[in-house]
Design a protein around this nucleic acid. Structure first.
Lengths: 127, 127
DNA sequence: CCGATCTACAACCATCGGGTTGTATGTTAG
DNA sequence: CTAACATACAACCCGATGGTTGTAGATCGG
């Protein structure tokens, strides 16, 4: 099961990554300037490995990008991913306002209920 | 201990709540119309209790509001919470653009590094 | 009243997530 | 080469989370 739809998982990862204060802070920091993982680690009251994991989570979510530079790995925030997050939020609201671009009846049995189950996991613009 | 706990946890809860596809769908649905918990439950391939928990998570995050109506509990999405989420995202980006409204040096040792640790958990507007 | 329905909540289980430590590998500096 | 540093990754602990079932209380319909 779980047809492995990338679209939904992507939203999951983005929001999950943002649900941690340390990670949000890393994102904000790396949007401002590039930091190596150990530079980041020095600024948080947790172990290096913990910060490393946070960065990995952010990277999987596309919120930061790692660039190898010699022996260090420089981390920079990805503003596009933030825009993506905005878009995902807008999709919820858009559906609400009746402006649904695409409808995917995931579950929605032929019930006489007002609204069908909508997908809202769409990833239209690509990229 | 742990003095404040209000500000940061709120962001945590909002994003964590949004990190689940079922919950995102519930939010979108309830922004469109009110549904009782069992109406919602009927539309998802999980138990009633599971949906009930999802609604509870959403409620704790402020993303939905429950209103008792007779024996049922009607759930409606809260657009304000979505705006709040937008704001939280903007804070990350704003910091990036150099427009920081408030700075809280949470950890940031007096290092000669470019940027101090910023709070970005602020909850100014109050709402 | 009784029965059906909606909700709440507890107990339980499996998995995930954040934290740690420890070890291995790569890279730069002498 | 060797030492020091930056990173990667595995193993482990433990609490949170998502799912289940089961039970109990409220409320509506006869």
């Amino acid at each position: 099961m779980v047809v492995d739809r990338e679209s939904g998982d992507r939203a999951d990862r983005i929001f999950a990554a943002l649900s941690d204060a340390t990670r949000r802070e890393i994102v904000a920091m790396t949007l401002t300037a590039e930091y190596s993982v150990s530079e980041l680690a020095r600024r948080f009251p947790v172990s290096f490995a913990a910060v490393q994991k946070h960065v990995a989570v952010l990277e999987r979510a596309g919120l930061v990008i790692k660039r190898r530079s010699g022996r260090e790995q420089r981390v920079r925030g990805n503003a596009d991913a933030l825009r993506e997050a905005h878009r995902l939020l807008d999709q919820l609201a858009d559906v609400w306002r009746g402006r649904v671009e695409r409808i995917g009846a995931l579950l929605a049995e032929p019930e006489p209920e007002p609204e069908p189950g909508l997908d809202l996991d769409l990833d239209p613009g690509g990229a």
